[in-house]
Design a protein around this nucleic acid. Structure first.
Lengths: 121, 121, 121, 121
DNA sequence: GTGGTCTAGACCACC
DNA sequence: GTGGTCTAGACCACG
């Protein structure tokens, strides 16, 4: 029983991304305890090494911190989390616009497309 | 004399993407002859095999066609190219919106961010 | 120790074809693990790159999927495999009939020839 | 103005095949004069070398013969042409059946498919 | 000249 | 360990 992962992106990044999103959306609350490496590995049908790497990244990004012998916890620093949310938003938007412009799409075309997509869904 | 390439993405994809964009922008015209594999290889400071792979992909995408012993040519099928442009646009926008929504950003927030970014802030 | 390959067709296509047929015949079961690129390379007496290309094609054809760091597996999607079998059958028959008709053979002549050949003459 | 050719097969083989079929169907009669190399090259939008190669093959197959300074002519040996027709038929059928069997299709399945395709068209 | 295939061997990120 | 990419250089058939 193994989750579906995308082949085009490393699994650890996919898990990392999902966790980040859950934190940003507030589905995982500040201070919450993350499952142990082994638990999450079993649950996702993935090698523990892979989960370990995810947790290291979370720590590096100051999203989670590991307390020895206790497990990993989402940071309680809410300003840090808000900051993270803004950074993510700006980065995603920036990259999107850059790509579109480089492909030759005009600002009007981009606005129209985005607005339509947002309504349509 | 070697072009600068990004380490995070395969070289062949970077070249492929650049060519696609040039075609979509109209900088390379329908029916235009692409440089020979070897020419482009020395020009980009890259192994011929790498360029070969790019051209194969272009053919698979029906963006270029190769004529045996003569070289590779951008397709003259302009509707195909227009279609390609639309597909690319919709795919990029769709993926962007999906990512943003999954990260918990509201439609208003997305519109505001995009519009602000486009105004060149 | 190298397998015999036909000179008139690329090696990677010959290996690809053989694998496809084994899958279609059911000799390789859905979900089965394929040998690693390196294993098959030494087994077939061929360069790893060549095998790599075969596996990429299998993936593109949705016959196999590769799991990062684990290896390549025949798809477990059995309807996909049945569909593949039908497509292959129809394509081969269609091409055969088209060729025969274009060479000026009558339907009766074709039926007679095929039936006679099948009876093992 | 260049004819459409298939990329997956050498152009000279495609032209050769077409000529063979026309001869077998009787659209080109025994003893008929073939166009000069240059004529056919211009007409097909192809390099004269390519046509030259076609004519050499026709000669090797004893389908045509070149008379110095006069041009190339389809052989007048009608038994040779009938023989050619039979050989081609048997070879095509034989290869077809072999491929199908190797892909695991049963004789019944093959007969059914062929018969259906012949009716359906 | 052209593209297509192949080998030998390397390096990398990932699991 | 795995697959994925890349280099260096070769050979071939084709036009």
């Amino acid at each position: 029983m193994r989750e579906k992962f995308n082949n085009t992106q490393p699994i650890y990044l996919q898990i990392l991304q999902r966790l980040c999103r859950q934190v940003i959306r507030g589905e995982i609350e500040p201070g919450a305890k993350l499952p142990s490496v082994r638990e999450m590995a079993v649950h996702a049908g993935v090698n523990p090494n892979t989960v370990q790497r995810v947790y290291s990244e979370l720590e590096r990004l100051e999203i989670a911190e590991t307390r020895r012998g206790l497990g990993s916890y989402i940071t309680e620093n809410e300003t840090r989390l808000r900051r993270l949310r803004e950074d993510l938003k700006n980065e995603q938007i920036g990259r999107f616009i850059k790509d579109m412009r480089e492909s030759g799409f005009s600002p009007e075309e981009i606005m129209a497309g985005v607005s339509q997509e947002l309504k349509g869904v």
